[in-house]
Write a protein that binds this DNA or RNA. Structure first.
Lengths: 209, 209
DNA sequence: CTGAAAATCCCCCTTTCGGGTTATAGCTTT
DNA sequence: AAAGCTATAACCCGAAAGGGGGATTTTCAG
């Protein structure tokens, strides 16, 4: 089996070199190239594609997130593993949405980093402990609203794009009652239109579609 | 440090017993209780809470997914780790939405299973390789629509719940033009109302909010 | 340069929504 | 028993949305 080839995108020369040393010093891994900025990485990576890219987020100029977007646009199959100090909610989800296939924080011990690279190459998505929990929790319902069961039911239909009339027919009640429920939903969610209600329902996972 | 206490919910007695043996045979772990069905588990678990529950999905009667929902309703802080043969998309996401904090397929080797229990207890969210990738990919944009840049921009505003007039003001164009763009969006997305368009945009991740 | 696609604007008309107000039956909670 | 909430239903009215035309300008690739 050939070595797993790795590229590193990291602005701190010290970290960059020590990562390269670690990878090249381990049988089965080769560090093919290193880049000090997102721009250089984009230019260089299209030439010779590694199996896995280790990408820092905080870079001078273009951020790692932007770099991931650009790279995945050009090379959808490229595996990019984020390796960074930052681990706040927003950055994590932006990175994953941009196309990262894993997310490691920088205090990951060498052995685990190598294991993560291996796992990425095997079709996995390695994440640091805390990150994994963040990701999984994002699926769970967060917001607690005081919508009644009936109101939630009506909201669910709204989220399918139905009109008052269609909802009335589905629930076997009059359109006027649907109107009443929706008025209450708007008051409780503090919105003033169907699209706003639907947006809020999706963002706060108020419905189970 | 006290042992990590584990409960097993699994209908196959053979698997159940061998898991219990594995856990009890490992220093640092204690299998506190085992249940052959979701119903029994719900009744028994509220009495003595373990640190981690290993939950099968395919159970006689109530499914593991339903059991997770009920248990998390009563005990939001309980860590439930799914351990099952099934790994199709739908089941994985249903389990995570229900409140599972990790997802392992049943061919997980004993050492890794124990490691996963440990990781769960440390606030992690262990997942089998393939599952983790599934989860991460769910954040990435899937659908490719032929919306123009301007249309996507208008759709984004729709997804914030804005009216035609507000969108017109935001983009410094006339309300008529907004109407025209929205007509085209409806045609391309094959929808007929704002709420339907918003729902589709969220479900298919057509916008970056 | 030319033609297609995109973006802009305007008019018609009908339906749907959103807000206000009122009312009754059923159920829970105090 | 009274108070409070929920679900049901109705009415009015103005504003917003949606569907059908048509037209002009900008932009960009061939």
């Amino acid at each position: 089996m050939p070595d797993i080839t790795v590229s590193i995108v990291e602005d701190d020369p010290e970290i960059r070199e020590s990562l390269a040393l670690l990878i090249n010093g381990t049988p089965g891994f080769t560090c093919e190239s290193t880049y000090g900025s997102a721009e250089k990485a984009i230019k260089g990576l299209v030439e010779d594609l590694p199996d896995v890219v280790l990408m820092d987020i905080q870079l001078p100029g273009m951020t790692g997130i932007e770099a991931i977007k650009v790279l995945k646009e050009k090379e959808p199959d490229l595996d990019i593993l984020v390796l960074t100090i930052q681990s706040d909610n927003k950055v994590v989800f932006e990175a994953l949405c941009a196309g990262a296939c894993g997310y490691l924080v920088k205090d990951t011990p060498p052995a685990q980093l190598l294991e993560a690279i291996q796992e990425t190459h095997n079709g996995g998505a390695p994440m640091s402990t805390r990150i994994a929990r963040l990701v999984v929790e994002s699926f769970q319902i967060t917001a607690q609203t005081d919508l009644t069961a009936r109101e939630t039911e009506v909201l669910t239909h709204l989220c399918k794009g139905k009109s008052y009339k269609m909802i009335a027919d589905s629930l076997f009640i009059s359109e006027e009652t649907v109107r009443r429920h929706i008025k209450n939903i708007y008051r409780k969610l503090e919105v003033h239109s169907k699209s706003e209600a639907v947006a809020k329902a999706f963002k706060e996972k108020l419905v189970n579609l």
